[in-house]
Design a protein around this nucleic acid. Structure first.
Lengths: 217, 217
DNA sequence: CCACGAATACTCTGAATCGTATATACGAGG
DNA sequence: CCTCGTATATACGATTCAGAGTATTCGTGG
């Protein structure tokens, strides 16, 4: 997976849009919004204009024309170049075929979780559980509505993916809640005691785990 | 979830470490590495020093002493302040209790997927499937090894979470593969034809879907 | 039919973040 | 003696972000 000149996924979306037809940046942003791609691709003006400029610098897109209606700011309309089309296909293919490690906030939180006492964590993840479930139900309703309207599922498949992931997280959280509650989570006792007495896994313990852990990278 | 003065999760990890004992930045980085937290929290020098400086600016940590051994670069040893301890607990609690939307590359790719023809996508996600499975098996082996050594699962719980998520993705990919292959994926026909004739969902179609989709935000 | 607040259509800025390269010291191994 | 690996950072350009700033146009209630 070679390094890309422009690496923001928003740039991939821009290339995708320009594959359909020429557009100016603001139109890209509204189109993405309309199609709910904002859900899956982070969009903000600052980034959009920067990304477009960068694509232009790297000759993946080019200016078709710039025009002005009334006294509004100029609009610069871009088209995609052949290099751009190639990059789009190549990049998208990579993303589909090669899993890349992503860092989520929750993962970070889990790895620092022992910094809070178990009963506190229990309360917190129970809250998370509730919220997750609410989100899942809401999105399910939307998907059902769309299905009723015969809107092709294919174009909102990323929502379905999201749901699958959320459900998995929900399952994980449920296990965690149960594990803390009934003490079946291996290590809760140590954990609880640590927050009473201050005892934590020693550097020695880590040394012994390190060999295995290293291989995860 | 109020905005934090320092928002990089690496900063949370730094606070966590300084809760245990005073450290200098380089030691933080090696400790995180040793504990495989690098797996779950993105770490690079540039960010680490910047983040420490920022924490310092905001009085969440303070300099304990700076010392020099021989003619090596100086080491600046930091301690956590009361404000820092509070921030740590507060921030970590937030992350555990409140699900936040994260944008993954694969989600972006899925949402742009119709830009490639279905049979190409089939090939690509099959590749992904294989790689995912390999990763899952490898990490399972590591976890099993650690269990055999009686290393407390609690301290690598984030790996277990990762696995759960990966398995969910695998299940999703499997459904996708099957759906394209046997045509049961709603819309494949339209999709395939689009890549032969250029027909895509109209702006009108999107307009109709928009009401529902908007509510997902 | 007009005023004025809301929405539309953009641009700009400063700060945070990233990746990567570099400086420099020291100890160990060949 | 030379080279590597570990130790302890700093430098720096490019990217990314959040949100403020600035015009225009639209919608609506008086």
């Amino acid at each position: 997976m070679a390094k890309r000149k422009v690496s923001n996924p928003l740039a991939l979306a821009v290339l995708g849009l320009l594959t359909e037809r020429p557009m100016h940046p603001y139109e890209m942003s509204t189109t993405l919004r309309e199609r709910a791609k904002e859900q899956s691709i982070k969009l903000n003006y600052g980034s959009l204009y920067a990304v477009v400029e960068s694509l232009h610098r790297h000759a993946l897109i080019e200016v078709q024309e710039t025009l002005r209606e009334g006294r509004r700011p100029e609009r610069t309309i871009y088209t995609i170049t052949d290099a751009g089309r190639t990059e789009f296909v190549d990049w998208l293919s990579d993303l589909l075929a090669i899993p890349v490690k992503e860092y989520t906030q929750f993962e970070a939180a889990l790895s620092l979780m022992p910094g809070l006492p178990p009963d506190e964590v229990l309360r917190l993840v129970q809250t998370r559980r509730t919220r997750l479930e609410t989100e899942i139900v809401a999105t399910d309703a939307v998907l059902a509505d769309l299905a009723r309207q015969k809107f092709p599922y294919l174009f909102v498949i990323e929502l379905d993916y999201l749901q699958e992931i959320r459900r998995a997280e929900l399952a994980f959280v449920d296990r965690l809640v149960a594990g803390i509650r009934d003490g079946s989570l291996e290590g809760v006792d140590v954990w609880r005691r640590a927050h009473e007495t201050g005892e934590l896994p020693t550097e020695q313990d880590w040394k012994e785990a390190e060999v295995q852990l290293r291989s995860v990278d």
